[in-house]
Simulated assay, not measured.
Amino acid sequence: MNRRVVRAVGLAVLGLVLLTGFVLLMVRSGPLAPVRVTTAVLERGAFENAVFGIGTVEAERAYAIGPTSPGRILAVHVDVGSEVRAGQLLAEMDPVELDARLAASRAASARAVHALASAGAQVRDAEVRQELAARNARRYASLGERAFFSDAAVEAKRQEADSAGAQLQAARAQLDAARMDLQRLDAERVAVERQRANVRLAAPVAGVVTARDAEPGTTLVAGQSVLRMVDLASVRVRTRIDQGRSGGVRAGQAASIVLRSRPGFAVAGKVSRVELNGDAVTEERIVQVVFDELPKDFAFGELAEVTIATSRGADVLAVPGAAVHEQDGRRGVWTVADGATAFVPVRTGEASLDGRTVVLEGLQAGDRIIVHSERELRAGERVAVVESLEGMRR
């Protein structure tokens, strides 16, 4: 009988221990356990927002240097990577017969100058002859009225005066023709000189040579390039920014540029222009970013990571982006008061790249909010604040 009592008591104690353990398990780790959460206390402080984009290093002003007429390359004086000054001779085309044509044109212009001088002398001679003939005609006419000369003699002198006037007109016409001929020959000479100058390919601006497309001896057609160069003052990063985050980007804002060839090394820059045209397919907007100081080791077409600082604030209330939730169509955060949860609707502003979101209304400095939780929360639910959710129960 005693054995039965002892056995019954032992089973009862064992059952009580198991029940207690089960209850503790349910309270601590089961459905009745408080939800483990991480929290943060809100504080006002500095807030800096930025947008991020990927761009390529390009030059806004690039030049293809080549002949304006077909020809053969005589010499190329620069190579890829050469820095050149404005007006510097880069390459030369074979002038072929242009030198001979230029010499002939200059000789023809010189001859026209002499012809013009000769025509001018003939005009002056004709003017003197016409003036003399006119005086003789007037004198003979006056004396003829007094019967000193016959009518035939008077008429002969009048005809001499008319002939001298016609010769003067002819001389003046020849002078005008000589003047126009000189203008024509000068224009032809200038045209040949320009053609001769075009075979000397010079740099339009100061810059750097980026490509050498042809070598001496190569025959080119008009418009085909011998060299390509860029204006270093126009180097910039053509950056693509998500249209949803580009609203705050303005010209003059500071930017940080990390070239693909130099990871981890940021180069300072600024926004020079926000393009009016965007990309409807990728939903991106084009932003031109220039370097404050052009780096020495870069490549055109190189990818770059660009971060543009769009706004700054010294007294801003911001919460981690993970703390903001949608509840019944309202945007808000979960707060902790006396160990229980409460959902507080808030009005938010912009979000930064580091994951913080500005709170405009609904919270105050000193409020404790829930950042992460091990499962979805409900109002009035008990929570247990922990440092981290790593190793949470499964």
Rank of each mutant, 00 (worst) to 15 (best):
A141S: 09
A309I: 11
V13R: 06
A104N: 06
R111W: 15
S261W: 05
Q195A: 11
V27L: 04
M1E: 01
E188I: 05
M1P: 05
M1R: 07
D315H: 03
A107W: 05
V336F: 02
M392F: 03
V235P: 06
G248S: 15
F300L: 15
L19P: 01
E305G: 04
Q364R: 13
L24G: 02
D354V: 02
A214E: 04
A255D: 03
G81L: 02
I65F: 10
G244Q: 13
V371R: 00
E275R: 06
M392S: 07
D297P: 02
V386L: 00
A59D: 00
A33W: 00
A75W: 01
N136C: 11
A133S: 06
A166M: 13
V80L: 05
A166K: 08
E283I: 02
T218M: 03
L18Y: 00
V35T: 04
E390A: 06
L363R: 13
L360C: 11
I257A: 04
R72S: 02
R172P: 15
V57C: 01
R135K: 09
P263E: 01
A107G: 08
A153R: 12
D162E: 12
L16M: 10
L303I: 08
E381T: 02
N2T: 15
E160T: 15
V336K: 08
E97Q: 07
A50H: 06
A91K: 00
A170S: 15
G144Y: 13
G301M: 08
V76E: 01
T341S: 13
R139S: 05
A254Y: 06
Q183I: 14
A115F: 12
R238L: 07
L16F: 04
M26S: 06
A121C: 11
L259A: 08
F52G: 14
V316I: 09
A86C: 14
G355T: 00
S82W: 05
R106Q: 15
P263D: 00
A121S: 11
D186W: 14
G247W: 12
A64Y: 03
V383C: 04
G247M: 12
V190G: 11
V344T: 15
M26P: 00
V226Q: 00
R28A: 09
A178V: 10
A75E: 05
V258Y: 03
Y140W: 10
G269Y: 06
V96P: 06
G278D: 12
R375Q: 06
R200C: 14
V230N: 01
V199M: 15
F265K: 12
I369R: 09
R72L: 02
S105A: 14
S246M: 11
V13F: 07
L168V: 11
F265D: 08
G81I: 13
V358E: 08
V154G: 09
F149K: 02
P70L: 02
R393F: 03
A266E: 07
R238M: 12
S388D: 08
G207A: 09
A177T: 12
K270H: 13
W334C: 03
V336A: 07
T210V: 06
P34G: 01
